[in-house]
Design a protein around this nucleic acid. Structure first.
Lengths: 212, 212
DNA sequence: GGATGTTGATAACAGTGTTATCGACTCGTT
DNA sequence: AACGAGTCGATAACACTGTTATCAACATCC
């Protein structure tokens, strides 16, 4: 009687592999979870609250996402996509090295603007979890973005020629490290972690410079 | 009737500030929690299981540590102390730069040898938590160790003269970044994150080198 | 010795993820 | 049109979690 929701499409879901953004109800659940995460943090991400915020019942979450982990995976995919978008938005191409520095800035800005989301993405827990292909794809896209930037700098003769993917992992690490430590509260409280990242990226690129 | 535990000392505890290693019962709780963490992971760290493994009741944990967070803080302090010890064990002093590289290796070895402990220390959650003084002290000790190594390299004219503490944060970030990303499962699965860290540290030190 | 205070095991409370129940509802077939 | 089959989802239950209240047993102090 209380059900005023539109009937969802009758496609048979895998019920273990999340459909993600197939019907309106699934989108509502993901959106509600995202808002809940942004406004109240990870602790607020309970199945009951997500379902209530989405206007459905808890079974809704289990039917469409297979449980809480399915919803979280959806949030992770969304997060990595947005992180990739943020870094992609720095297409100046005038100076490849400046592009890389801007990428690092955008990375940090994303983390600070979406702290709880970033925490969900990188705040470990289950570090042996079998990464799903969809999640691996969006993460790889973000990494490849850095690799492309690096390869362009190598082509321009600004950086030593190295494996772009491995070098991209180095840059990602140099972006993630300071952000992660800042969020964890390690080190002197008042210290400027922004400056740490800026100088770390600068020193790294300096160390990777082509000789002469 | 079942209580065969020896009577603990009658000192009045603060009941909010953890006493930590005052009496045998507190030590038993911390040890049990540490073993539980190492053998079964963070998920196994429940008050009931900790208390049972320590041979007491749940109230024991609350009387002595003020709750689960108090026990976790004890584990964090122990973790940072051990991490600091691991880095301190590399006192060769023959080549300051080699010492720093060894420090970074020790850092990674500690993380890989104690993955669940490292996860507890850096796997975010509550990133705005008010760090307790005791925890801040052991963390600062580990950071200062890096700062000392760096300052010695600066004194030897091997590195540009910079703020040692800020530079130490850069090195720490360069150690933590690859380890954290590897544990989180970001990036290509088979990639050698050890090589990423090694080259990252090398490039960073190279970028910080004094100009001739 | 008796009053006082603390201690800690038991049980209860609120909340978690997950699963089972079972009515209501839709759809394909006759 | 009407029926039977099958799905969907709201409710309630289960096994947990951290935390708190209860209250008997105990050690201490006057």
């Amino acid at each position: 009687m209380t059900s005023a929701t539109a009937p969802p499409p009758r496609d048979g879901y895998g019920l273990g592999v999340a459909p993600r953004t197939v019907d309106a109800a699934s989108k509502a659940i993901l959106d509600a979870a995202g808002e809940l995460l942004a406004s109240e943090g990870i602790e607020a991400l309970t199945v009951r609250r997500i379902a209530a915020a989405a206007g459905g019942s808890t079974m809704n979450v289990y039917s469409r996402f297979g449980g809480k982990d399915g919803v979280i995976e959806g949030l992770l995919i969304d997060g990595f996509r947005r992180l990739g978008d943020a870094m992609e938005s720095t297409r100046t191409t005038s100076s490849p090295l400046a592009d890389l520095r801007r990428c690092a800035e955008k990375y940090r800005e994303f983390a600070l603007a979406n702290p709880t989301h970033y925490d969900l993405m990188f705040g470990s827990k289950k570090f042996e979890q079998p990464q799903t292909p969809a999640l691996g794809a969006v993460a790889a896209r973000a990494l490849n973005m850095l690799a492309d930037r690096l390869e362009r700098a190598m082509d321009a003769g600004l950086l030593q020629r190295r494996d772009p993917l491995l070098t991209a992992q180095m840059v990602w690490s140099a972006c993630h490290g300071p952000v992660s430590l800042e969020m964890r509260g390690v080190g002197p409280p008042g210290t400027g972690w922004q400056e740490v990242q800026r100088q770390l990226i600068a020193a790294l690129l300096n160390g990777l410079k082509a000789n002469k």
